[in-house]
Design a protein around this nucleic acid. Structure first.
Lengths: 218, 218
DNA sequence: AATCTAAACGTACGACCGGTCGTATGGTTT
DNA sequence: AAACCATACGACCGGTCGTACGTTTAGATT
């Protein structure tokens, strides 16, 4: 697996490949994949606002001008749809936040780039409801299942990436890097909520806190 | 207003007093207040697990062995119920976390006591779904209304309390105290989610991070 | 040409949603 | 005694939910 694939967490290609490898030339499967993608992309937006439980097959179908049973055909159950939504959000997050930051040299510079990209991601925002994970992880932390597993997997990868750059940034013990990554992630989630509530200072707070870690690692 | 009342945020007595002061001897109102309290107490537990939107009048009625329209009579709309639930959760939080910590001397000791009480609150937990605010604030951050206002009010009071004790603890600028309070609150929320996910180290992380603030305030 | 398969749709079902209405009960006020 | 009020109930409203089933269409396979 490439370094880039490792950084992006569970490999996207092999994940979608279960279907695509079998028949990349089957027009029916291609059409299905296209429809699935369209549905899931819209569902990510809705879920960032209403939560993954706030999704409903009927509303998605109406929004996209298709039939409710068509949506059901493509995903089977609501849980499958939720898992697909979580994976799509991960892909979008990776493309918008992580990939651009990989251009920066490893260590402090890349961590700063990650945070700056994250700020753009949360402030612009990529999803209308702000950070997808802030909205969904709290919703599913008491709800075991595939959906929660997918969300947790992404958070683990994200924190791991932060910790890796912290270690690269300076002489810092592994355990301290994990602690700092936990802390930075926590601040980002809190900043997202603050932004949703109209607190414009949240961005400044994030920068100052992250700078604190890079100036004097503890 | 007493110092204690100030610390507990919006005063409980004057809030409920709208009704109680008028006729504390009216058996009908007393009975209604009793019923309201029973419903809301149970609803807080449900909401900590399923969110404030996960509440339903029908399910609450079934759980408590009363009629659905009885619940409706007492609260009118679902939103009113949600607001009442948020206020009840605040009272329970104040009783379980803040009040006991007020026994400790102001400053570092009291902040440590607050955090220790918070750990008990999240670990035991007081609500079956863990920290009530972690579960609900993320749910309502994009949903303007009375419910969100009530949740935000509590968070503001809580952060203010942390900041006040930080200022008392040592020579720290006001702006830095606010920043540190933001950070500590963020870590507590993240720790609650980590606890829900089975990460037992979360408690240790909280202690080490808070100790960091008290050892060398930045 | 015949068979198979995936996508998409229409219909239908049982469950539950929040909310409204009329009514009965019992305490309060006049 | 009469009028009033808050609580509480049962029945019901229009809607939405997730899901199941059967059918049609179109591309792939044999």
């Amino acid at each position: 697996m490439s370094e880039l694939a490792q950084r992006l967490g569970s490999d996207r290609a092999t994940r979608e490949g279960d279907r695509a490898d079998v028949a990349v030339s089957d027009q029916r499967l291609l059409r299905g994949a296209r429809s699935r993608r369209a549905i899931v992309r819209h569902a990510v937006d809705v879920a960032s606002l209403e939560g993954l439980n706030g999704l409903s097959l009927g509303r998605l179908a109406i929004d996209l001008g298709i039939s409710k049973s068509g949506v059901q055909t493509l995903f089977g159950t609501k849980e499958n749809l939720q898992v697909a939504v979580a994976e799509s959000a991960r892909d979008a997050f990776n493309d918008a936040v992580i990939l651009p930051a990989l251009a920066a040299p490893r260590g402090a510079a890349r961590l700063r780039a990650l945070v700056e990209q994250w700020i753009v991601y949360a402030e612009t925002p990529l999803f209308p409801g702000g950070c997808f994970w802030a909205a969904t992880l709290a919703e599913f932390d008491s709800r075991p299942g595939q959906v929660r597993d997918a969300l947790v997997r992404h958070q683990r990868d994200w924190r791991g990436l932060i910790a890796a750059e912290l270690r690269e940034a300076g002489e810092i013990a592994d355990v301290d890097a994990d602690l700092a990554a936990f802390q930075i992630d926590a601040v980002l989630i809190a900043a997202n909520i603050a932004l949703r509530l109209g607190d414009q200072e949240a961005v400044d707070k994030v920068r100052r806190i992250v700078d604190g870690f890079l100036a004097s690692p503890r």
